[in-house]
């Protein structure tokens, strides 16, 4: 327990990064934006939505892990985020059981 707390106190020192990493991530995000816009121009039919959502999810992972430092935070934050996502997915899933079979 205590060592965990201790780690937490020093946490800030542990994830001080250089500008470069973040600028790289930024360019990655720009590239993904370009991809999503250009793909939307193609006619992919029912795949359009899936592709758009997959790209948005990748972008979100980048933002969360690097800009929001989740990658460098203690595991408890990842657990929290997982709980939040699972609950939200459950809400959408159960609502769609109604819509699809209505």
């Amino acid at each position: 327990m205590d060592s965990e707390k201790e780690k937490a106190i020093h946490e800030h020192e542990s994830h001080s990064h250089e500008y470069g990493v973040y600028i790289l991530v930024f360019f990655g995000l720009l590239a993904l934006t370009a991809i999503t816009v250009s793909i939307a121009g193609l006619n992919l039919g029912s795949l359009t939505l899936t592709v758009a959502l997959v790209i948005a999810t990748i972008k979100t992972c980048l933002v969360a892990n690097y800009f929001m430092h989740v990658k460098f935070d203690s595991p408890i934050f990842k657990v929290f985020i997982a709980v939040c996502i699972v609950i939200f997915a459950t809400m959408i899933g159960l609502t769609f059981f109604d819509l699809i079979f209505r």
Binding site: D98, L99, F101, R102
Partner: peptide, 11 residues
């Protein structure tokens, strides 16, 4: 409420 039968059973 008029919800689908499937989801009524599931719920």
């Amino acid at each position: 409420s008029g919800m689908s039968d499937t989801s009524r059973v599931i719920f």
